[in-house]
């Protein structure tokens, strides 16, 4: 962490920080593929920046862009782990609350910071999902709605991971085309 030069100066000189600033938008889009929102992806980009600042400025980096994506990939894998922990904790919390309230339906009240969609839009999303071909729809639901990894989805459906990825890719195309305007 200790540096003899002010960090602003170092930033100008470090090829890694320069590459980061140049690639920031692309890194954001890369990370956002795995986060639940753009805001969460922004947080990860910020984490990435902080990690860069602690790297040894003197270290020689052959390909800054490759290093940036390696670090970004590691962040993704870490955050998926912590998100899984988080959602399990949430589910547990909901279960407890429900038990305390004697089975009353409390899950209609989301946490204050939780973004939820307008009911009208939810119906459109559901209709678009319904319109997917059966196998494609099943892969999409297991992976995106029930939160299974691609490997878990492949296992559940008895097909290859490659096939799952192809189903998801085609599903995204169809959904994006149907839902945009």
């Amino acid at each position: 962490m200790a540096s003899s030069e002010p960090s602003g100066r170092r930033g100008e000189d470090s090829p890694l920080l320069r590459a980061f600033l140049e690639k920031r938008e692309n890194l954001l889009l890369f990370l956002a593929a795995r986060t639940r929102s753009m805001a969460a992806a922004e947080d990860l980009v910020q984490d990435l920046y902080l990690k860069l600042a602690t790297l040894d400025a003197g270290a020689e980096v052959r390909s800054p862009t490759a290093l940036l994506y390696r670090m970004a990939s590691n962040l993704l894998i870490d955050q998926v782990r912590s998100e899984q922990r988080g959602s399990r904790r949430n589910a547990q919390w909901r279960l407890d609350t429900r038990a305390i309230l004697g089975g009353e339906d409390v899950h209609e009240e989301p946490a204050a910071d939780e973004q939820i969609l307008a009911r009208e839009r939810v119906r459109l999303l559901a209709e678009a999902t319904q319109a997917l071909p059966p196998q494609m729809g099943r892969a999409f639901r297991l992976h995106k709605l029930e939160g299974l990894s691609q490997a878990q989805t492949a296992e559940a459906m008895g097909i290859s991971r490659k096939m799952v990825e192809a189903h998801i890719a085609a599903a995204i195309k169809q959904l994006a085309q149907r839902l945009r305007s």
């Binding site: 639940r36 929102s37 969609l117 995106k144 994006a176």
Partner: peptide
Amino acid sequence: VWHEYAAG
């Protein structure tokens, strides 16, 4: 669209 499905 992907994020909307995540949120909802």
